[in-house]
Simulated scan of single mutants.
Amino acid sequence: MFTLTLTKGVPDFSEGAVSFDEDGHLERGDTPTVMNPNDEFALKAALQTKIRNGGTSALMSMGPPGYKDILREGMESVYADELYLLSDREMAAADTWATAITVSVGIEHLDETPDLVFAGFKTADGETGHTGPQTCWGLEWPMITHVISLEAYPEEGVVRAKRLVEGDIEEIETVEAPMPAVIVTDPEFEPVYRRAEHRLKHRDLREETKARAESFEDHLTVWDHEELNLDPDYIGLDGSPTVVQGVDPIPKAPSEREATEIDPADEESMGELLDELGPHAAGRAEAGGD
Results as ranks from 00 to 15, higher is better:
T99V: 09
G126L: 05
T31F: 12
P254F: 12
K201D: 06
L150V: 06
T185G: 02
D21V: 12
K162L: 10
G29R: 11
Y67G: 02
L164P: 06
G66N: 11
A92Y: 07
G24P: 05
R160Y: 04
H109F: 10
F189T: 01
E27H: 12
P11V: 12
W137I: 13
A196G: 00
T7V: 12
L110K: 08
D115I: 02
L228C: 13
A196C: 04
D231A: 11
V247L: 15
E256H: 10
L85E: 02
L110R: 09
S240V: 12
P37H: 11
G246D: 13
L228E: 06
T174R: 12
I235T: 10
I144G: 01
E188M: 08
P187Y: 13
D290R: 11
G157D: 13
R89E: 15
I107M: 02
G138S: 08
L6Q: 01
V103D: 03
V34E: 09
P114C: 12
W137Q: 05
E188G: 04
F121A: 03
S57F: 02
G138A: 07
A119R: 00
M1R: 09
G9S: 10
T209N: 12
V158T: 12
M270R: 13
I107W: 01
E108L: 10
H280W: 00
P264I: 07
P251S: 10
V222H: 07
G55Q: 13
F216G: 04
S269E: 14
G271N: 14
P114R: 00
T135S: 04
P32D: 14
A17R: 12
E268I: 07
A211W: 05
P133F: 06
L59K: 02
T209E: 05
P191H: 04
D95T: 11
G16D: 14
D290G: 09
G236T: 05
N53F: 05
E276L: 14
Y67P: 00
E286Q: 11
T174Q: 15
G120A: 10
D266K: 11
M270C: 14
F189P: 01
G271E: 11
L220V: 06
A281E: 02
L274A: 13
A17P: 03
D69G: 06
M35V: 13
A211G: 02
E112V: 15
A281P: 02
T113R: 00
M91N: 03
T56M: 09
E258C: 05
V182L: 09
A253L: 15
F41E: 00
M60F: 08
A196W: 07
P191Q: 04
E286T: 12
I235F: 08
I70N: 00
G74S: 05
G16A: 08
V165I: 15
V103W: 00
A211D: 10
D39Y: 01
N38G: 04
V34K: 15
K162V: 14
P191R: 01
G167S: 13
T113W: 00
A17K: 15
K201E: 14
L83R: 03
D95L: 09
I235M: 09
E276T: 10
W137S: 06
T174M: 14
W223I: 00
D125R: 07
F189H: 03
A253S: 10
A45R: 00
M35S: 08
A98L: 09
V18N: 01
F2G: 05
M75K: 03
E267M: 07
T96C: 06
D95I: 07
Q48W: 00
